[in-house]
């Protein structure tokens, strides 16, 4: 299996998987099924997480195709541009869906607005993702005739390349994003530690597991900061972020998202009472959370030595 396989496999999640969830979400809203709506929010959130891996695997797939003679590089750039726009909307959908899950079943004005925004962003994500997928398919499928229908203008640089030039021309952007990436890291890691050490029993007499969920938005804020600043690096210099090692980091981020869902949805976590620590499964979840995010830091840090950066 090479990076092209990985990209072809993963691109089904933000397209086909997401489309099915969107249809179910609309049905849940029309029929007033709260349970189904919640399942769709889970799928939206997970799809957004997997889309991070999908997006970065496209970079490796492109490296493979660069040498192939009859593959149009401007078409790949157009696909990358379209994918970036779709990616942004998908991430916003993911964050809004997560907020919906976090609010839970309490009916409130905020919750109603949240559902509306999820719907709007999910529809936009679907449209933009379909467009990106159409362009992606055109790269290697002449039989569809799609390539001829896409206006490709190789004279003007694409959005990602323009961004790369901006970063190159402004020496403050890179160190500023690095600093913010460290700030986000600290916020995320701090919340991960407090949350999971509590599940392991530290401070159980003083801190209820219910109260812990109030810390989650702080962790998500740290993650959002790192997603934005991380994309600044990636979009500006994609050639630095190729290879299995960087992809491992992104896979670990997806694992982190799954772990967070475990914390939010798992009944055995909910049942941890005041003064108690978790059962075996809860502890497994807690230990894996600390290990996953430590491994994410490890992979990020070791990129210059074990990956292809710098």
């Amino acid at each position: 299996m090479n990076p092209a396989h990985v990209h072809l496999l993963l691109n089904h999640f933000p397209t086909i998987g997401f489309a099915i969830a969107l249809v179910l979400f609309v049905m849940a809203l029309l029929l007033g099924k709260a349970g189904l709506r919640r399942i769709c929010l889970v799928i939206f959130f997970l799809t957004a997480a997997v889309t991070i891996a999908t997006y970065v695997s496209g970079n490796d797939a492109r490296e493979l195709l660069k040498e192939t003679p009859d593959v149009s590089d401007p078409l790949m750039q157009a696909h990358e541009s379209a994918a970036l726009g779709a990616f942004v909307f998908m991430q916003v959908t993911g964050f809004l869906s997560w907020i919906g899950l976090w609010i839970g079943e309490r009916p409130s004005r905020f919750a109603r607005w949240n559902v509306r925004f999820v719907l709007i962003f999910a529809v936009f994500s679907f449209v933009l993702m379909s467009r990106a997928a159409y362009m992606g398919g055109a790269i290697r499928h002449p039989e569809t005739g799609a390539a001829e229908t896409i206006p490709v203008d190789s004279a003007t640089p694409s959005l990602p390349r323009e961004w790369g030039v901006f970063v190159q021309d402004h020496s403050w952007v890179w160190p500023a994003c690095e600093t913010l990436h460290f700030v986000g890291l600290s916020l995320l890691f701090g919340v991960v530690l407090v949350l999971n050490l509590r599940l392991l029993g530290i401070g159980r007499g003083l801190l209820s597991v219910e109260a812990l969920s109030q810390l989650l938005p702080l962790g998500m804020l740290g993650f959002a900061l790192n997603l934005v600043t991380g994309m600044m690096f990636f979009v500006a210099t994609p050639e630095q972020y190729t290879g299995a090692f960087f992809f491992l980091k992104m896979s670990l981020v997806v694992a982190g998202a799954l772990n967070l869902l475990g914390f939010m949805l798992w009944k055995s976590v909910e049942r941890v009472g005041d003064g108690d620590d978790g059962g075996l499964w809860t502890k497994f979840l807690a230990v894996s959370a600390i290990l996953i995010w430590t491994a994410v830091i490890f992979c990020g840090h070791m990129l210059p030595w074990l990956g292809n950066s710098f």
Binding site: L185, F189, G190, S208, L218
Partner: peptide, 25 residues
């Protein structure tokens, strides 16, 4: 880097709690 994450992370979480975030904690 990991040490920084631990120190600043726990400290920052405490600071934000003092400022009113996560009032149940």
């Amino acid at each position: 880097t990991i040490g920084m994450g631990i120190v600043v992370g726990i400290n920052g979480t405490f600071d934000l709690r003092v400022l009113g975030f996560a009032p149940s904690v």
